[in-house]
Design a protein around this nucleic acid. Structure first.
Length: 778
RNA sequence: GCCCGGGUGGCGGAAUGGCAGACGCGACAGACUUAAGAUCUGUUAUCCCUUGGGAUGUGCGGGUUCAAGUCCCGCCCUGGGCACCA
């Protein structure tokens, strides 16, 4: 018989909601704890079992913290601007506002059905004007600080559809919609100067507790390199190896390099302009990725043009090569085939000589000036799309760019008939004269609104701040509340967000801290990452493959508690795992057994009514309970949820067996039953609350204290150790814990079936590991 | 190509340098049942002789160590990211 999970879960969810049990208090005197998960994009597909995995994980941590006496804030919201909803609107004509509302409603219902202890009173939605009003306001702060500027960039352009494409829509250099070859088109775009914060973003990593691989990814992404900028007859190159200056045999320029452009325009004369032009045109049509991935390096020698290495007077030939990227360093490199593998490969193809002179170890002899470069590039902040926050700027022919006055925010996203970008590549907003025509805020003359919108990353760059004060109409969040709750104590999200979202949101927060608007510079104290849940067979879940697992069906059939418990049990939290449709059966059976035991033992035996015999409890059971408390407590902190669940199963099996061995009417010490339930409740809170009620104790389980263990009680009197001969296991024996090597040797001497292995042998060496093994080398 | 992960039974996985395979799924056998299901009990890495034992075994090739899934070196395969997907 299955326990009535639907009834139980609905009952407790309604109870928690009514009691507002999980709302964080701004005025609480308890110590605060801020747990954060990456909020979902409310797609039409509904909640993914991957969301359930990471949201359950931090729900477990949030619930444990409440047992430990913290004022926990665990908020949720929706990151609702983005391409999929816009594409859906283009396809179906359904307004993104309408689709988002519908999808959000579904997500909210699904999240509620899983019993997460979110503080629903702080819910945010990035496409709500009351939210994006402040996203726009924050953009203006960047603008006013000189960190938002316009620059020309290259975008992906489909000449057939006549629209700009996201990289994702242009994979393999082909338009996702029509299959045409994607071209590059120059476009003037708003940029955010994240590079100005490169050093602060690097430095900040030193004081936060992020997983090591996350720090490494961010450090490498920022890519700080110290080196020298060296001049070769007017061509400036950047190198991290100035000590190899005596071994330079060629120079390479990126196709984008200004000197190359001058050569093509005829401003600088070279011998083979046509050949170079053909190469450059081809290179410019490729993406950086394609250029880097090319198996064989390509390039062209520039004829009748060379430079001098002023260090040794060598004459150096110059090539254009697309493995040199225009936006890194100076867009030009020196080639040292003797000391660099890529240069060696290039030299091999073009028969460039290799020169192996001694390295110049004395820094004073190095030419050029010290220079620091970064791989990090400024953030392209414009999209010529509909479904995003309008950038709050006005262009006046007389006054230039003018920010929209703060009192006029939000700049509302207007309704349009056609969501497609225009044929000239502009956002559909550009066709709405009622939106575009405005007065210049400065001269009151005729002016136009900016029609670009912000990228999806904008709203998610500061949502953790808005949660703290989501209804504030006067500021993005009240300073005192920010001070009370920041930093986020524990942030979990996907590895796939580590270099973009995580870096962007750190950048915004550090900027706001510099402006005196938030209390700490680093927003996240600790950051961890979950692995993906894949479809059966390890392939990604997707609608087109038809392997999407719907949480609704699982909640209905097995219950939210069984789903939560299974997702914690499925495998190591940080690693990807395939979904096993049979797996949830195991945790469901486990919960059934728990419910059965508590009902059988406590139903209609209200505490106090009937004298319950005190049953002396076996010391091994007490030891196991203490061990379980220790293991579950530690495993949760280390996110080893799978082994925590396993330990709960082991502990429960022993409890079940011990209770079953008693005479009818007798009950084991209640401490076993209460502690077990508290340990279970972060994972499967509904069933734990229900069973707690059966115990007939006063007070809710939710307000209990997390159980503690005693190391003394864990320690067992006897331990089993292994006897090895030449590293092969020959037998096992029970010894008193803490026995010495001499004592163990005596015990072996007394055990004929062990001692026989040693008869007639010469012992060369004995290795003794206390409590583990004794190894005889004979 | 560059940066960051991962590779252990039929499957998901466990294992402070110290008994490889905990826990769960599946499978097989038994109990209960008129039967099925549910539930409970037992077995379950592979190979070989079959009381009991022996050999092999953690992607591949080397190395360190009394002892390696774990540490070191070199490969192979695979997942995530690469700046306009979120």
């Amino acid at each position: 018989m299955n326990y009535p999970h639907t009834k139980i879960e609905k009952k407790w969810q309604a109870f928690w909601k009514k009691k507002r049990l999980y709302e964080a208090k701004n005025t609480s005197t308890k110590k605060k704890y801020y747990t954060l998960v990456e909020f979902p994009y409310p797609s039409g597909d509904g909640l993914h079992v991957g969301h359930v995995r990471s949201y359950t994980a931090l729900d477990v941590i949030s619930r444990k913290r409440r047992f430990e006496g913290y004022n926990v804030i665990y908020p949720i919201g929706y990151d609702s601007f983005g391409l999929p909803t816009e594409n859906y609107a283009i396809k179906t004509g359904i307004a993104p506002q309408v689709a988002t509302k519908k999808n959000t409603k579904t997500f909210r219902r699904q999240l509620e059905s899983l019993g997460f202890s979110f503080d629903w009173s702080r819910e945010v939605d990035t496409s709500d004007p009351q939210y994006y009003r402040w996203t726009q306001w924050l953009f203006l702060q960047f603008y006013k600080a000189g960190l938002a500027y316009k620059a020309k960039t290259l975008i992906n352009w489909c000449p057939s559809c006549r629209i700009g494409l996201a990289n994702e829509e242009a994979t393999g250099g082909v338009c996702e919609r029509c299959g045409s070859k994607v071209e590059k088109k120059e476009k003037s775009q708003w940029m955010l100067k994240i590079t100005a914060y490169a050093d602060k973003l690097l430095k900040g990593l030193e004081k936060v507790d992020f997983l090591p691989e996350i720090k490494t990814q961010q450090r490498n992404w920022i890519g700080r390199s110290e080196g020298r900028e060296i001049n070769f007859s007017g061509i400036s190159i950047f190198t991290t190896r100035p000590d190899t200056i005596d071994c330079v045999t060629f120079l390479c320029l990126a196709p984008e390099h200004s000197l190359v452009q001058k050569m093509l325009s005829g401003e600088v004369r070279i011998g083979n302009k046509d050949v170079v032009k053909k190469y450059v045109d081809e290179a410019m049509s490729k993406t950086d990725r394609v250029r880097e991935e090319a198996k064989e390096k390509t390039g062209v020698l520039i004829e009748d043009y060379s430079v001098i290495n002023s260090f040794n007077g060598d004459s150096i030939p110059i090539y254009v090569a697309d493995y040199v990227l225009g936006h890194y360093g100076t867009g030009a490199v020196m080639g040292v085939p003797a000391h660099d593998l890529r240069d060696q490969a290039f030299a091999g193809i073009f028969n460039i000589p290799v020169k192996d002179a001694p390295l110049i170890t004395d820094e004073k002899q190095w030419p050029g000036k010290k220079k620091v470069t970064y791989k990090l590039r400024d953030w392209v902040f414009s999209r010529q799309r509909y479904w995003g926050e309008p950038i709050p700027m006005i262009i006046c022919n007389a006054c230039g760019f003018q920010p929209v006055p703060e009192r006029d925010l939000p700049v509302l996203l207007p309704k349009v008939k056609d969501y497609r970008p225009r044929e000239d590549g502009e956002s559909p907003l550009a066709s709405l004269s009622s939106f575009v025509s405005v007065k210049c805020p400065k001269c009151k003359g005729k002016a136009q609104r900016e029609t670009d919108t912000m990228p999806n990353w904008a709203g998610s760059s500061w949502y953790f701040l808005r949660y703290l004060d989501s209804k504030n109409k006067k500021a993005f969040a009240d300073k005192r509340i920010i001070k009370k709750f920041l930093p986020v104590d524990w942030y979990n999200g996907g590895m796939e967000h580590v270099t973009l979202h995580l870096l962007y949101s750190r950048f915004w927060n550090i900027f706001l801290h510099d402006r005196g608007l938030v209390s700490v510079s680093e927003p996240y104290k600790k950051r961890t990452a979950h692995g993906l849940i894949l479809g059966e067979g390890g392939i990604k879940m997707s609608k087109s493959k038809g392997n999407v697992v719907n949480p609704d069906t699982l909640v209905k059939t097995f219950g939210a508690d069984a789903l939560r418990l299974y997702e914690m049990f499925i495998g190591p939290f940080s690693e990807s795992t395939p979904w096993d449709p049979q797996g949830i059966v195991g945790t469901h059976r486990f919960l059934n057994r728990i419910h059965r035991l508590y009902v059988a033992t406590f139903k209609n035996k209200k505490g106090g009514k009937k004298a319950v015999k005190k049953i002396p409890v076996d010391s091994t059971l007490i030891s196991l309970l203490n061990k379980t408390i220790k293991k579950v407590s530690e495993d949760i902190e280390e996110m080893r949820f799978n082994t925590a669940v396993s330990e709960l199963m082991i502990c429960f099996r022993a409890l079940e067996d011990a209770q079953a061995s008693l005479k009818a009417g007798s009950v084991l010490s209640k401490e076993l039953f209460t502690s077990f339930l508290i340990l279970l409740s972060p994972f499967s809170p509904h069933l734990a609350a229900e069973c707690w009620e059966l115990l007939g104790k006063k007070g809710l389980i939710e307000v209990q204290k997390w159980p503690t263990y005693s190391q003394k009680l864990i320690k067992e009197e006897q331990v089993e150790i292994v006897m090895q001969i030449n590293n092969k296991v020959k037998g096992k024996l029970m010894i008193p814990s803490g026995a010495t090597q001499a004592e163990v040797e005596i015990l072996i001497g007394l055990a004929p079936n062990l001692e026989r292995h040693l008869l007639g042998t010469t012992i060369k060496k004995i290795i003794f590991v206390p409590g583990r093994l004794i190894n005889y080398i004979i």
